[in-house]
């Protein structure tokens, strides 16, 4: 009984002195002077994806610089979008390699089934994710371009210094030697 009266009294006192409004104001004030969580992409920073990230495909190569791919066409067969084209041939060493290995990135759904199906550990989906283009013909990527693509992220899950560059198309290259930072460091959890 007394507790209820006290509760009601404190409720009234809070209403009279706008305690709930002041509570909200103090919360926004503390946010105003806390660190921002904005990721300044593409001006200052960019996001490094985790190793599990499925981005632009790449072809792994062996010690001699040749592709691991044996042109078995399993990836082309399992691809749900039919976006991989493989034409096999026998090179001068008598090894089976793809003559044509094309991926239509505009049709690909980045499921990663090609990576799972590959018996030679040749194709995988890497960390590169900035490959939009004005021309959809440019999205059909050939064998040599795929071999030059960056591989999977090593650490990932961090924000690294980068700078927007318009020299060779519009790219956001990471600044070499920049220290990555955990993006979650400024996120407040209550």
């Amino acid at each position: 009984m007394i507790a209820r009266v006290a509760q009601r009294m404190s409720g009234w006192i809070g209403w009279v002195f706008f305690l709930d409004l002041l509570d909200g104001l103090s919360l926004t004030l503390s946010y105003m002077f806390s660190k921002t969580v904005t990721e300044r992409y593409p001006d200052n920073e960019k996001w490094m994806p985790f190793p599990r990230y499925r981005g632009h495909h790449f072809l792994k190569s062996n010690a001699e610089g040749k592709t691991n791919c044996v042109a078995c066409e399993l990836c082309a067969r399992i691809c749900p979008c039919r976006c991989i084209t493989v034409v096999p041939h026998e090179d001068e060493d008598g090894e089976r390699h793809p003559r044509v290995f094309e991926i239509n990135l505009g049709r690909c759904l980045y499921c990663g089934l090609c990576e799972d199906a590959c018996p030679a550990d040749a194709i995988a989906l890497g960390r590169h994710y900035e490959f939009s283009d004005y021309d959809n013909k440019a999205l059909v990527v050939g064998r040599d371009a795929l071999m030059a693509m960056p591989g999977k992220a090593v650490r990932g899950g961090e924000v690294v210094p980068a700078r927007l560059s318009t020299e060779d198309g519009v790219t956001v290259p990471a600044i070499a030697g920049g220290e990555g930072a955990d993006w979650w460091r400024n996120i407040r959890r209550r």
Binding site: T28, Y31, M32, F33, S34, K35, T36, V37, T38, R40, D43, N186, R188
Partner: peptide
């Protein structure tokens, strides 16, 4: 700017 910082954003920067 105030709107941005209250919402933990930066506001206009570019």
């Amino acid at each position: 700017k105030i709107a941005g910082h209250i919402q933990q954003r930066l506001g206009p920067m570019r």
